[in-house]
Amino acid sequence: MSTPITIVVPTYNAGNNFKKCAYMLLKQTANITEIIVIDSSSEDKTPDIAKSFGFSVDIIPKCDFGHGKTRQYALNKANTEIVVFMTQDALLADQNSIDNIICFLQRDKNLAAVYGRQLPYLNTGVIGRFARLYNYPDTSFVNTFEDIEKKGIKTAFLSDSFAAYKKSILQNIGGFPKHVNFGEDTYIAAKLLLAGYKTGYCAEAMVYHSHDYGLYEDYLRSKIIGKFHKEEHWLLDIFGRAEGEGVKYVFKELEYLFDTGKIYLLPVAFLHNILRFIGYRIGLR
């Protein structure tokens, strides 16, 4: 019998699109023994949809939701050592996605968390598509604390839109931070690396998950990131500042637009990057 797995999906007004995600969860070849949905009192049929697929549904008050504390609440409920966290809009790309991420996680006893590759949906715009291709490459790797010199703050990057954790290790370092309502996955990755554990990225474990943020949405999101870095300033003190990574992103995006013949989008990309920078600096201060 393969390793038993718990899947956790926080939801809120996921709508009918959640059916596609639920269907792909049931098609997985992995030994999924429980699927826990933590629903923040949806106003639509999300809890009923989840129950119709046989998922365990725990409804919490909307005001009680927090990205850190809700995931810790779910982690405490999980009955297996390996727990996979997903978001309601992450669609597993094939039936082996969960198996692939679990196999990667289990190949090293010091590997505590692994996140999977996020592919852009087919209808994703050029700028949103590049963001996924840049942050989720086609080559797997493992991060250790020593990688800071080469990767800087990117060493602590991890996304729990699709990520697998070893519960015992996570609990040993204090679990998900209940006071953090954004960036809880980065927080956890950094704490794991500081404790001497490894984190990983499995390019063979894939989900479809992408967004086409508008200018104002990009500004607000970057402002939240800046605020997170201000509140958790130890991240920047230890792993380095984020601006250097931002510059790399801009140049790679420029190269991508030239290579794909989308030069006409340069003004739009420029505006997005300027607003991201302004938002981040405002949040940081």
Rank of each mutant, 00 (worst) to 15 (best):
R129H: 09
I148P: 04
L235S: 03
A156E: 05
H272P: 03
F277V: 07
S40C: 09
T46G: 09
G214T: 14
Q28V: 11
K19R: 15
I59F: 06
A163D: 04
E232P: 01
N100H: 03
N17L: 12
H211K: 08
G244D: 13
D58K: 05
E255G: 06
M1I: 11
G116D: 07
A50L: 07
A50R: 09
Y201T: 07
E184S: 11
F65Q: 12
Y12I: 10
I173W: 12
A30M: 05
A163Y: 03
K227P: 00
Q118L: 07
L194N: 10
D99E: 11
A30C: 01
T87E: 06
K167C: 01
V8G: 02
G175E: 12
Y249L: 02
F239A: 01
A93I: 03
D218E: 11
A90M: 05
T29Y: 01
P10M: 03
G15M: 05
M206W: 04
T46M: 08
V250N: 12
Q171N: 12
K223E: 15
F157Q: 03
K252Q: 14
I32Q: 12
L194Q: 15
A269I: 07
L75D: 03
L119G: 06
K77M: 13
F258Q: 02
I32W: 12
A269K: 08
K109T: 15
T3D: 09
F53S: 12
E255H: 04
K166C: 05
G226L: 09
D48G: 10
S168G: 05
Y213R: 14
E184N: 04
F162K: 07
N79P: 00
F104E: 04
L105P: 00
I225K: 09
I188M: 10
E243G: 08
A14C: 09
A93E: 10
Q95S: 14
I153Q: 04
Q106G: 04
Y264V: 07
G125E: 01
P10V: 00
K109F: 10
Y213I: 00
P4H: 01
A195N: 07
H67P: 00
Y201L: 00
L220K: 15
A50W: 02
V207W: 00
H229C: 14
K154Q: 15
K191I: 08
